[in-house]
Write a protein that binds this DNA or RNA. Structure first.
Lengths: 341, 341
DNA sequence: GGCCGCAACTAAACCGGTTTGAACGGAACC
DNA sequence: GGTTCCGTTCAAACCGGTTTAGTTGCGGCC
């Protein structure tokens, strides 16, 4: 009942009648091995069912054959975020084909830096994804200091030596705002994400800029935290005084919470208030009324990010990766603004 | 600008004036090293800022110092599930203190077995978590064959050589059903998860059994897939003929979708229909009406599961781990049943 | 004084690959 | 016929730890 020992490169060498150095060369497609010998070695390896020990390889070449993802969000927030699992699925799609693994680290925000340092010091990973970029994100300098390759999701605000997956939330938000303007809305509010996050900031700017371009005021904005509780609070605040006729939310979760707040206040959506979300979560189409929102494709971003990261690890400088823009999905939570409420 | 070479055990040995074997012994707290020597070695290691290379260690002791999690769910379903991120956060909490990493693998369901085999063959992990247990789950035999330690979340239906975190959904569902019975409901339906999943099956059984104990019929049950779309479809089906006065959903996502369906059909919740969910997602308290649901603690389960897994890897046989039962959270989506509708 | 036993330590093998330096043999060249 | 050169192969070093088999020095014992 002892587990069968797995064959090593020495077994292959013996069976093929060559030295293990030659086996290594043959299997890595290096020149300097006669075709006939190479064939013999490949056969021997196949017969024995040999696969290289990635631990041994990791030690010799000083690579981890893995990439990392550090999440500093609070677990509760993570739970509600549809982005993250889809992104990971996309990442895996690329990684698994290439024999790489994904190392995940979830840390309290205070230990974020230590998290990256540990991954680097232990040589656990050969590179990392940088998610949830913050304004003037300190992690960029940190990773440069650590010499760890990285790929950022969306372009950071400062200079960055790392390639970025060019996720841009602006067109999606702009489309939502324009959609509302076309419906006749003039008082269009925004429930924003935290300004410290790039995606919070960028969505807010897009909202403001699109309004400005239409000659409309961009005054009604409340900053929240992407959570349902925050969305509800912000909505209540907006609806209290000088009520807008439409609210653009920075994500679906807050939008759905806001929708409920409006309903509890007896405000009819979309009759008296139009609402848009962002993310197109699973639930968006199944609330009442179904939510007009912006569909993004985190699965695709994950694939693209992993491709770029692996390429970057293997040495090449990598260009930023374009991705298709987000699409507005019009459902029933938006309707023409009534001439006067 | 070259990255400074990090010190090896040889550097420490030289500095302390001993052989590297002694250094290894000293640092692993083995007997046979004089106290004075040990101190000198520790000092030298500290001075040099030495930390052991886990790659080298992994090779010699044939351990990965990592544990794995294979997710075979579709990305869309994952995205909506609050369980998974919280669980991971709990797992990490335990792992990071012990220098272990978490390797995540997201695979299409068809490649699930290959996923585990790869993790084992590459010695990428020393053990795995078994989530989303299925009825007669084939992975148990697979992992036993692979000789890979594991911990299951909830007890599997068949025999299992692995310790389990004793998550039990029954009391939570039973509490929800009893709560509805106490409110006077007699026609209590259930929107179930897929019967192939243990947690789908168990919740359904708990619903049926609690009704049976109260002498009520457990006939109105529709199986869905834990998704919003599925929950909406199931709800519509239940409300069409012989309408129940209450519906117990197997998760919050379906419950929220069901709530919207009822509202669109002009059925007042909770006036004409009471609804309960399961999970207590972030959103549950912020829909209208706020959802009565069952609060679980996946973060805690994650911690417990990781503890058990590490212990199991380190050799000991491990007992099943009890966890506190889920709690019913009563909100406004449940109300007394009207004498006659 | 010689022997035993033990604590403390060293040297070397080992894990399983990659990589370097040198050796070998045959063909080409002068 | 001897030198050069190249393609092929091997032996050994290396990555950085752990572990085993010895070696050393010292005190106790008879």
């Amino acid at each position: 009942m002892t587990r069968p020992e797995r064959p090593t490169i020495n077994d292959v060498a013996r069976r093929a009648g060559v030295s293990k150095g030659t086996v290594s060369f043959a299997l890595n497609g290096r020149p300097g091995v006669a075709e006939e010998t190479r064939q013999r070695i490949l056969d021997a390896a196949r017969d024995l069912g040999w696969t290289p020990s990635h631990q041994a390889r990791a030690l010799s070449v000083s690579r981890a054959f893995a990439v990392g993802l550090v999440l500093a969000r609070e677990p509760e927030l993570l739970g509600a975020d549809p982005f993250f699992p889809a992104f990971i699925a996309g990442v895996e799609r690329t990684l698994s084909d290439r024999g790489q693994a994904l190392v995940l680290q979830v840390v309290p925000e205070a230990e974020e830096e230590a998290g990256y340092r540990r991954l680097a010091a232990d040589k656990r990973v050969d590179g990392v994804f940088l998610l949830d970029l913050r304004v003037a994100d300190p992690r960029i300098a940190l990773l440069e200091e650590l010499g760890l390759p990285a790929v950022t999701i969306a372009r950071p605000d400062g200079p960055s030596g790392f390639p970025a997956v060019l996720v841009d939330d602006r067109p999606g938000i702009a489309a939502a705002v324009r959609h509302l303007i076309e419906l006749g809305h003039r008082r269009i509010a925004h429930v924003a994400g935290p300004a410290q996050f790039r995606h919070g900031q960028v969505r807010r700017e897009a909202w403001a800029q699109t309004l400005a371009e239409a000659g409309l005021p961009a005054t009604a904005c409340v900053e929240a935290d992407f959570s349902a509780a925050g969305g509800a609070r912000a909505t209540r605040q907006l609806l209290e005084n000088d009520r807008p006729t439409a609210i653009v939310y920075a994500n679906d979760l807050m939008a759905i919470a806001g929708l409920s707040v409006a309903q509890e206040l007896g405000i009819v959506v979309p009759g008296q208030l139009s609402i848009t979300g962002f993310d197109n979560t699973d639930l968006a189409a199944y609330v009442s009324p179904p939510l007009t929102t912006v569909r993004t494709d985190p699965y695709l971003w994950g694939r693209a990010a992993a491709d770029a990261l692996l390429q970057s690890i293997e040495g090449g400088t990598v260009d930023d990766v374009p991705v298709p823009p987000a699409q507005l999905v019009v459902r029933a939570s938006t309707a023409p603004s009534l001439p006067s409420v």
